[in-house]
Design a protein around this nucleic acid. Structure first.
Lengths: 190, 190
DNA sequence: ATTTCCATGTAATGAGTTACATGATTGC
DNA sequence: GCAATCATGTAACTCATTACATGGAAAT
């Protein structure tokens, strides 16, 4: 019961067109960074394993641009089958780990200004995410509006958009609350 | 640069009162399961390490209830200092990994009914979360309304409440959209 | 009798990041 | 000349879960 999904992510992206490990990494960073990430240390061993098992095979080797050879892999029928089977299985809920909330939970032991700083940094990250989502939405609608995948991509984008909106709302609430707590504590001290 | 926060979580909970490894695990499951989790395999080695470094010390050893001795640890001044320093440091953003969204992203290769099933399961989880949050809120307000920690706990609870509301909204939208896609696909086939 | 809960701990395994090794090309 | 980008791959390390070992007491 392997809980990692590196292999499935790779198979999924190879349904687009043949890609090298380097291209897979870049593509993941540009498309699903919102909810997925992979490092080279996972991708290259996974490609080797997938090739050994016949889920992918070498499509072409060339030397465009840089120094090393680029090895492009293509999906095999067996690989497509593995992807389809995985898609029917229920998704594992993620293990929750949110350091910001852990800090706030023990917030009484920090000074109020620092907590506010943490929430402000969080809000900045959310705002950056939202700006990126707006660009992604435009790009999908402009460049891939007729792609059969586009509807599914927009579904995942929408998840990020709605979640970020709610977290922005929470940030505002939290900032107000933290300032109240800070002034309340200041009053009690005087 | 240790990226784990098991140690900080333990120190934080020991500000409440002395606890054993077993009690820490149970307490985490009952209070912050919403955004944090720890397993025995992490807690016991971490307790050993913290004791070796003088951040915690044995408070009492007794044999209530079950068979083995229960070893309760208490926070030292040094431990409290480590906690306070950590609280001032910026929180690391979590590495994104959402298997449901990865499945939807490649959803064109699955049949529509299965995707709907995944989103329904997701929605059920969200509803369960919301019911639990309502209980937690009641419990905090009823049993800990005058605790100096309560305001901070409610801040983290509110995060979960707002986020779950938005995700519930997304589920509804996604279900509608998936049904449209399914009937569209059915029409094109006929 | 058997399950459940209390309780501590280790070992095996898996998952994942970061740093390193290597090296050519392109743009400043 | 130097940094950035392209490109593959390995090694060391960290982090975390799960299963195992051990065993008593209480409830069914």
């Amino acid at each position: 019961m392997s809980s990692s999904r590196t292999i499935q992510a790779i198979l999924g992206f190879l349904t687009w067109h043949p890609m090298s490990g380097y291209e897979l990494r870049r593509t993941i960073g540009e498309s699903v960074a919102n909810f997925w990430s992979e490092s080279f240390g996972q991708i290259y061993p996974a490609l080797r394993k997938l090739a050994d098992e016949g889920r992918i095979e070498v499509d072409e080797i060339d030397r465009e641009g840089g120094g090393r050879d680029r090895i492009r892999y293509r999906l095999t029928g067996a690989g497509h089958e593995v992807l389809r089977r995985w898609l029917t299985e229920p998704a594992q809920p993620p293990r929750p780990r949110n350091e910001l909330l852990l800090k706030l939970f023990f917030g009484r032991h920090a000074d109020a200004g620092v907590l506010e700083e943490h929430v402000l940094a969080f809000r900045r990250r959310i705002e950056t995410d939202r700006a990126r989502y707006a660009e992604v939405r435009q790009r999908i609608e402009r460049d891939h509006g007729d792609s059969p995948d586009a509807d599914y991509w927009l579904l995942t984008l929408r998840y990020g958009e709605l979640e970020r909106e709610s977290l922005l709302g929470w940030s505002e609430e939290a900032l107000v609350r933290l300032r109240e707590l800070a002034s309340g504590a200041a009053k009690e001290e005087s």
